[in-house]
Design a binder for these strands. Structure first.
Ligand code: ZN
Ligand code: ZN
Ligand code: ZN
Ligand code: ZN
Lengths: 165, 165
DNA sequence: GGCATAATGTTATATTATAACGTAACCTAA
DNA sequence: TTAGGTTACGTTATAATATAACATTATGCC
């Protein structure tokens, strides 16, 4: 069974993230088995880096992480972008368009319709769990056939509102 | 009175665009007067380029348009980006995050909450006129204070569905 | 093993965006 | 009217993000 956090704003709450991480990685492995896809070591590495937190990371941040430790043969951008492409396509991570960044998905296999709350202050991002149907209904009523939707709401999270007075 | 197209999917319909263009430019001028802002010639030029169609354009496409005609002193990217920044801030154009592009706004002064339908085939983009309240309500119910929302729905427009069979 | 395919690695380059600093235009108030 | 503050524009250089093209290696299947 896939990891199923109780709260929509998990990134903004304390939780047992070790457990969260393990669950999400297991779910990813299972999903790839079922779909007969290869969760290769590169792909796993990149996913692990994103699972390390609920924070968004740029492709080059991930690249730097992979190259950390001063390894002799440093890998190049296309490797990261290809792993990201795979993970996005399978719904294991999402791309945050308004930040040119990537974040782990909390509903592995979630291939479209993700919605995010992005705090402009602490930069944390929460993935909402309830896809919005009314918007897609409106699109359909105009005869538009939806592939993919990007919903990214920027503002101040509850925590940062306190600090900001 | 600002230009007020009848249909939400104006970019996908035939209409008197000359008139549409004139109305949007007048509305922009009026809006800047009211707000005591300077719609300088650079800003007007950039807005004109975007008003020429309801299609999205990249900053460098706009730059190329400005430099068209082989003028001797070609202008550089920051000039375009600054004009775009002003026009976005005043709600005269919108940035399409998932395309790194800009498009004229059909509701001049519209400073946030725009929603778009983006056809992956013909690449036209329709700006919806009804902001979605339910999403913002959900954000608020989580204690999140919304600044700005990005809603970009990709798919196939009605026209392209016919052609694609 | 031989072959097809998928994934990775490598090099170079394209595309998008901004930092930093100087100049010109505009505004207001001695 | 002109000095001084402010806003906008111009220029140069470079940062940050992303992909094309092609070589190599790993994997699965017969
Ligand atoms: Zn967690
Ligand atoms: Zn998700
Ligand atoms: Zn028009
Ligand atoms: Zn608009």
């Amino acid at each position: 069974m896939p990891a199923k956090p109780k709260s929509a704003d998990i990134a903004f709450r304390k939780h047992d993230h070790r457990r969260c991480q393990r669950q999400l990685m297991s779910a990813a492995k299972r999903l790839c088995e079922v779909r007969q896809l290869r969760l290769t070591s590169r792909r796993r590495q990149v996913l692990e880096i994103l699972l390390a937190s609920h924070r968004p990371m740029g492709a080059y941040d991930i690249l730097a992480e992979l190259n950390r430790g001063g390894a002799v043969d440093r890998i190049a951008p296309p490797i990261v972008y290809r792993a990201l492409e795979f993970l996005v396509a399978e719904g294991l991570i999402h791309r945050i368009e308004s930040r040119n960044a990537f974040i782990c998905c909390i509903q592995p296999g979630h291939q479209n319709g993700a919605q995010f709350l992005i705090c402009r202050d602490c930069e944390r991002i929460a993935e909402l769990e309830n896809s919005d149907r009314s918007l897609l209904a409106e699109a359909n009523s105009l005869g538009f056939e939806v592939d993919h939707s990007v919903v990214e709401i920027t503002g101040l999270c509850a925590e940062c509102q306190k600090h900001a007075g």
